[in-house]
Structure formats: C-alpha cells, structure tokens
Nucleic acid binder design. Structure first.
Length: 464
RNA sequence: GACCCUAUCGUCUAGAGGCCUAGGACAAUACCCUUUCACGGUAUGAACCCGGGUUCGAAUCCCGGUGGGGUCGCCA
C-alpha cells in the first residue's frame, strides 16, 4: 500500500506555526514511506475564504520547502462530485432532509444548555420505521443530515494518542449539506479523503471529535477508513493557547524576523517529536527518522529562545553568498542603497555570521559597512582621547601602504601597538568607534579587510 | 455542563516494569578562551501532579482525584 497523506488548510488566513508543523509532519510521513503528499484547499466557507489566503498558504509552504506531489485541489471545484454523493445517500437512506429552522435549532440548543445537557439535534426529521414525520413546511428549503448510527461505539487506533472510543449515542445527525445545497466540512473531508485515496490523516488535535463522525460517514459510503494521527496543539511562549488575537503569526513573519527556514523546520520537527537525544538534524535525517510512534500526545509550549539558538546555529553553517543575498534584500527593503559601494556582502557575512542570532542583526551590521554611521559625543569623549587619536594617526600612516589582507592588517595594527606602547583594546576600541560609531565589532583586522582601504581611511580622517 | 484527550527539570523532551542515585537540549549560573561584543569550551543547580492499587520491583501498568487542553455551528 502506498502511503498518501494530505495537508488540508482552509484559506481563511495565513499559514501559522501550528499549521506549518502539521504540514511538516504529513509531508515527512509521506516522504519517509516513499508515498505521496497532497495539498488540498478547503474553501467551502465562501464567506471567509480568500484568494489572498490561498496565496499566503502557498507562499508559506514554499518558504519552508514543503513541496506537494499532487494538488493543490480546491473543494469548490468538486461541487458536482459532492452533489452526486449526497444524492446517493439520500436515495440509500443514509441521509435525510431536515426542515427545522435555524431559529428552532437555536431555541432547542438554548433549552438543552439551560438543562446542562450537551446541545444536539433531536432527530425530529429523522425517518424511523413506524414513525410518522410531520408534513414538510411549504417554502422551506431543507438541509441534508447524515443518519448517524444510534447504538454502539466507534473507535480507532489513533497513531499518536492510542485507542480512542466514542459512543454513537454522543453523536447527533449532523448536517452534510446546507439549505443552499453546499456541502459542509465533515462531508467534504470524507469524500475527498476517499476519492484521493488518503491512507493517513495527520491533522490537529481539534479534529479528534470530528473523527467518529467521519468514520461513520465513511462506513455508510462503504469507503475504507484511513489511519488517523492527531497532533496536539502548540501553545504560545507564555503557555497560553495561540489565537489570532494572541501570538499566532504567519510563518512568513519568521522570514521577516530574520529566521532561516531550516531553523524553523528543525525547531518545529523537534516540537512534539523526538528521536532519542537528537536536537540538530537535516531534513534528510528527519525524513529518515520520522515516525508517528515518537510524536508526543500532549500539548507543547513554543520556546522562542530555543528557536533563536537553532537559528544562530544554522546561520554559522549558512553559505556566505546566500547570506549576501539576504543582506542585500533586507537592506534594500529598509531603503539602503548597497549598489553605491563595492563592499562585499559575502565578506561581511563571513566575519559576522557566527556573532549574530538572525538575518536582521546581520543586516544591521552590514548597514554599518555600507553607510558610515555618526559618532555620538559620548563615545567620542570616552574613547577618542588624545592618546587614542595619536595612535589612530600612527595607524593611519601605516595603513596607507599596508597590504590589504587580514593577516597583514593584523601585523600593521601590532606595529602601532609597539610604536605607542598601548595594548590592543586601547587601539582597537577607538578604531571601532571611529569606523562604526560603536565599541564592538568582529575582529578588527578582519573588519578592516572587508571595509577596504579607501573607506577605512575616509572614516578615519573624520576623527583625526 | 457533557464528551474526548492529556500530565517527567522554567521550556522542548529521552524513558515502552529492574539499565533511573531519571539522560539530552534551550534558558540560568560560574569559570575558561579572548583584540571588544559575541561565538566556543567546561562545570553547576533544576523534574517523574496527588492518592490508591497490581508487582519481588513502577516515571513506566490499572483506578480515582486534581490541573491543563479540545469539541459540542447550515466554520473548517
């Protein structure tokens, strides 16, 4: 049997971190078993679905590098098929028309809640042997309800949570088609998973309660029941649940915030899944190791600090040319023209990538190379003392004819040390202030090498 | 309220009855390295929710409690 998994978001917003992990696990499971991963857009909520959201989801998936093998399928394009199945069910008696109005339904639910009961449809239009149904009210367009079994239990062996069992008595006859004929979620999912031959449904925890309904539907249709794996939810950094109002952000926000996709992926993989003590691994390793047995059943709290650590780790490993592209992109976005200078962004990346936590910090440093920052009075008076300026003057003369490589520049600075009798920090710090308006930078010889002779002398002359 | 799920250091987790005086990672703290800030290295502190069982033996199995979460839509 070929494994077929799917990621089925509804296009009512961006791809957030929880959805991204669900997609990642579905993708990995298919890859792990040489199967097929498909993307399905569940857009039957016409009022809330937007093309922008579809694009946002596609963008997020692409940024993460989670490629689907089939799709994207759009449920709105499958209406004919849904109508056909509904008609079939109506004919076979596994579904029926219900003329109860929304108002009556609301009243019924309010009464049930007042009695502290579980709100549910009371089956008044459900056909039963020997039961006489009221005459269909004129002018009312009925909804279609599924005739759910009333006895027994429905259970499945959840691939992450173990055996889960529901009494059919707990389930009511849910609506599968609205008054306007459009099918509803549980129904579409079932028909799609069936038609698309999905073997493993990997989805969020919030669908556990839909599963017994979907299994009953599948059985009524005579369709095979796939394996289910329900992933527990991801809580915010503060332990609170993520919501639109609180903490739920688009995966693209992580791009904006300077995270590398491989860091986000590695973090997400490790959030709720483990492989012994492995913490840092490639996607190839993840795919080779991934299994549902080691997915945690309980909710996990998002930890930005650990993500930051992974991001810093992957930054160190990242190719300098790739980082150069990121630097240009980010600087350009903040209005800095990097074209006027011949400073090599890859060089900047090479000497700074192991000192920063994210791409934005790297870009901020790069900014200092492209545009000479001002020097605050405070720093000037503290570091550009008479002694320091004299040393810088000495250094300037030597720099004039120095061979412009880091080792040679290091030697040059040391000559100034010898000449002035100062210690390295006594020269290096004023030099940093003169060059960048701040006291910290990467190793000063490397910095000079990247900044270049012309720019270095120009900046030095400002303070001499 | 009903139903369903869940519970190991602050956080993510290892752990499938003896290997556990509970391991790793992030974070924290200390020290080392050092041309500043970082990086890096080393070390330290830090947890099995509670109560009953089962068993020679339980973090691991069972029951109950408590905490947390999910669902109860003509949303998905």
């Amino acid at each position: 049997m070929t494994v077929r998994t799917r990621f089925a978001p509804s296009p009512t917003g961006f791809l957030h971190i929880g959805g991204a992990r669900t997609a990642l696990f579905s993708w990995a499971y298919a890859r792990r078993h040489g199967g097929t991963f498909l993307l399905r857009i569940e857009d039957t909520d016409v009022a809330r679905s937007t093309p922008e959201a579809v694009q946002a989801i596609l963008d997020g998936m692409q940024w993460l590098g989670l490629a689907h093998d089939e799709g994207p399928f759009y449920q709105m394009q499958r209406m004919a098929r849904y109508g056909e199945v509904i008609q079939q069910m109506l004919t076979s008696g596994s579904a029926y028309h219900c003329y109860m109005s929304k108002d009556d339904l609301d009243t019924l639910r309010a009464e049930q809640e007042a009695r502290k009961q579980k709100p549910r449809y009371d089956g008044r239009w459900r056909p039963e042997p020997g039961k006489t149904l009221p005459p269909a009210p004129a002018g009312v367009i009925p909804v279609v309800r599924f005739r759910n079994p009333t006895d027994g239990v429905v259970s499945w062996d959840d691939q992450v949570k173990g055996k889960i069992e529901f009494a059919n008595a707990e389930l009511d006859d849910f609506i599968i088609a609205r008054g306007d004929g459009t099918p509803t979620y549980n129904f579409c999912v079932v028909v799609d998973d069936w038609d698309m031959a999905i073997t493993h449904v990997i989805r969020g925890d919030d669908h556990v309660n839909n599963t017994p309904r979907q299994i009953n539907l599948l059985r009524a249709l005579g369709a095979p029941v796939p394996a289910y794996a329900h992933l527990s939810m991801i809580l915010g950094d503060d332990g609170q649940k993520l919501s639109k109002r609180h903490g739920a952000v688009s995966v693209m926000q992580y791009d904006d915030d300077g995270y590398l996709p491989e860091a986000v992926l590695n973090y997400l993989a490790r959030l709720g899944w483990s492989h012994g003590n492995e913490e840092v691994f490639t996607m190839e390793q993840f795919v080779a190791w991934f299994d549902l047995d080691h997915v945690t059943a309980s909710a996990a709290q998002f930890n930005t600090e650990k993500l930051n650590w992974l991001n810093a780790h992957y930054l160190k490993l990242a190719d300098d040319q790739r980082l150069a592209v990121e630097i240009h992109r980010r600087l350009k976005a903040s209005g800095v023209d990097t074209g006027v200078s011949n400073i090599d962004a890859a060089g900047i990346a090479a000497i700074n990538k192991d000192r920063v936590g994210n791409l934005n910090e790297l870009s901020d440093i790069a900014h200092l190379f492209y545009v000479a920052p001002g020097i605050s009075n405070e720093l000037a008076s503290m570091h550009l003392t008479e002694v320091a300026v004299a040393a810088l003057r000495d250094l300037r003369t030597r720099l004039q004819d120095a061979v412009w490589t880091a080792p040679e520049l290091s030697a040059t600075v040391k000559q100034t040390l010898t000449a002035t009798g100062l210690k390295m920090p006594q020269v290096a710090i004023p030099l940093r202030v003169a060059l960048f308006g701040q006291t910290q930078s990467a190793a000063i010889d490397k910095v000079l090498a990247v900044l270049g002779r012309e720019e270095t002398l120009k900046r030095l002359d400002r303070v001499l």
